[in-house]
Write a protein that binds this DNA or RNA. Structure first.
Lengths: 202, 202
DNA sequence: GTCTATATGGAGATAGAC
DNA sequence: GTCTATCTCCATATAGAC
């Protein structure tokens, strides 16, 4: 009987889903072996540091995904295209509100202290990249920073509320509102040359 | 040697702080006995249902606090006064961003399923009360509901981001922004009779 | 109504066979 | 590189003395 051979890179997404669903403390080794079908022995072979190492690698992989799909485009590309890419990636990643942000969830309890640097970097990088993009799009530095904060925090809040109410429409509405906020600010900044546009934040 | 006699009502705030800091799964009986100084025997005397009953009573107490300090004023009082009261209560309750929302944190992992009704009610009651207040202040129903959602979710998001960055200024700024959003909408609604006021959302 | 002592299961982690 | 068997510790929970 052939045994299933895993690569570490195949295991991490499975771990991510488990941690996301159960939280760091709520995830036990037993659950991990059950859901992945991988024995304790194999898991320790991949992750000698045990649960903490697993979670650290999960966080690193999530961060990597966002860097590639969101932060780098924001810092590099044409602002309207980069923003469009951000909304698409974010909506896809969080499955339109069905999936929570593992890093945000880890931030809320004592798990934060275990992974403080990774958690902080994830959000700071997002804020930095988005601020840069908005600045290039014409917003003043302080306005860009404020708006970036509003967006990043608004996504986190929407995930919390959508899950609390078990209603993902909350998430969709919030993404729309945040898009609107960005449009409004950028149009205000461009007022000298162009007439105010038609779309209110609602 | 005199023994310290506790009342259940004295214990619950202690439990609340522990759950808030460590999360539901991260809180063990051992931690609870250490931090409260109450033995297991006494704890089970107060809470025969164990940890789950403790958390349920904590959630109920938090809800009760918000009903009294926030939701009832919003549903009953003069809108400007009720809103002012909400901002003061919220800023005080969350210690200007130092303290997270236990109910929001519980919403993010499998703990939600254990306390789904309590979690949902907490947020729905808040949304309902705030929508009512904003409607009475002159906003249209849909605008009031949208704005209420923005406020409630914006507070949750600010708590997540403030803790992730370990920077409570994020929370203060967001409260200010949300106040501004409300002012802006209410002034727009009152445009027919009154001149626009002086304070921009920044 | 408080406590200590204890039962029992599951936690994270390791050893070592295959 | 996979697995099972096992270790130790701490989890929740209970019993019963004071």
């Amino acid at each position: 009987m052939p045994r299933t051979i895993y690569e570490k890179s195949d295991v991490i997404p499975l771990l991510a889903e488990i941690f996301r669903e159960l939280g760091y403390e709520g995830t036990s080794f037993g659950t991990i072996t059950e859901r992945t079908g991988i024995s304790k022995g194999s898991l320790y072979h991949f992750f000698p540091g045990g649960k903490e190492e697993m979670a650290a690698e999960v966080l690193a992989e999530i961060d990597h995904w966002f860097v590639e799909k969101v932060y780098e485009p924001l810092a590099r590309d044409d602002p309207p295209a980069a923003l469009e890419q951000m909304w698409t990636s974010v909506d896809g990643y969080f499955r339109s509100g069905h999936r929570i942000c593992l890093i945000g969830a880890f931030a809320l309890d004592a798990t934060r202290d275990r992974f403080a640097a990774a958690i902080r970097d994830y959000f700071e990088d997002w804020l930095r990249a988005l601020t840069s993009c908005l600045t290039r799009a014409g917003a003043s530095r302080p306005q860009a920073r404020t708006l970036a904060e509003e967006v990043v925090l608004g996504i986190q809040g929407a995930l919390v509320l959508a899950r609390a109410l078990d209603n993902d429409v909350v998430f969709a509405r919030q993404l729309k509102r945040l898009r609107g906020s960005i449009d409004t600010v950028l149009q205000q900044e461009a007022h000298a040359t162009k007439p105010p546009a038609h779309k209110p934040p609602n």
